[in-house]
């Protein structure tokens, strides 16, 4: 038996919707954010509509049941049922939407706020656009010394950072579960791999309180490390972060 077009369309949409949920939430164990799912479904619906209506027969077949429902005298009972259910469903939807909930309001943090062009770090005004890791050049010039510096950076990291950011640098340290926002996962390709070293220096040195206004709410509990670490310790730690994760800092120069 051939499935009517309208039912086909509904089935496809339902399939995609539950497909997303099953694949992300169950199989991959990584929930799909509801805000994103709504937009995804909007465009999937648009796509399905396009495929079903690009020719006349398809369109006629698609809207025929709807037309019949509204116009066909023999469908009176169904019509009445639908005309009662639709407003009720809309009302229920509105009620659920408007009902006060205990859920804390959505908070969105810009994870990579644009850095200021200069920042005051260690009492000095530094130009973040030009700031470079003083040790980076050793990677080529003196690999042995570079290794040593990375080791020293690792020591600083283990002493100070791993409690939150984890010993695998995956943002999953012993204290991570207690923090919101959770510590950054440096292994992720979307974090330090996308940034320049000066950016990391700025974020580490000024910590959560150093975030600009657009990154509000700066509920980040990242300490202001310039109060605890020396300048070269931060730079060495940055070397370690990139070395361990295998990422390289963003730069505009060529290799």
């Amino acid at each position: 038996m051939r499935i009517p077009k309208l039912l086909q369309a509904v089935l496809v949409l339902a399939g995609v919707y539950f497909g997303f949920i099953v694949v992300f939430d169950v199989i991959l164990d990584a929930v799909i954010p509801s805000s994103l799912l709504v937009m995804y479904m909007f465009f999937v619906t648009a796509g399905v509509f396009m495929v079903f209506t690009y020719d006349e027969e398809g369109t006629r077949e698609l809207v025929a049941p709807i037309k019949a429902l509204v116009e066909d005298p023999s469908k009176r009972v169904w019509r009445n049922i639908v005309f009662v259910i639709v407003p009720l469903a809309a009302g229920a939807g509105t009620y659920v939407q408007m009902q006060p909930s205990f859920e804390a309001p959505l908070e969105l943090r810009t994870i990579h706020p644009a850095p200021p062009s200069t920042a005051k770090i260690y009492g000095k005004r530094v130009n973040l656009l030009k700031l470079e890791n003083p040790f980076r050049k050793l990677e080529k010039e003196d690999p042995e010394q570079f290794r040593e510096l990375v080791e020293e950076g690792a020591a600083v990291y283990i002493e100070n950072c791993q409690y939150c950011h984890g010993d695998k640098l995956d943002g999953n340290g012993p204290y991570a579960a207690g923090l919101n926002p959770t510590p950054l996962n440096f292994q992720d390709v979307g974090t330090i791999a996308q940034l320049q070293e000066s950016y990391l220096f700025w974020r580490i040195a000024t910590g959560g309180p150093g975030l600009p206004k657009e990154a509000a709410p700066w509920i980040s509990s990242m300490p202001v490390w310039q109060n605890f670490l020396k300048e070269d310790e931060i730079w060495k730690t940055i070397l370690f972060l990139y070395d361990y994760t295998g990422h390289s800092p963003r730069s505009w120069g060529h290799e």
Partner: peptide, 10 residues
């Protein structure tokens, strides 16, 4: 309404 409204720094 679809995207978060971030108030840029003054």
């Amino acid at each position: 309404f679809g995207i978060p409204q971030i108030e840029p720094a003054p």
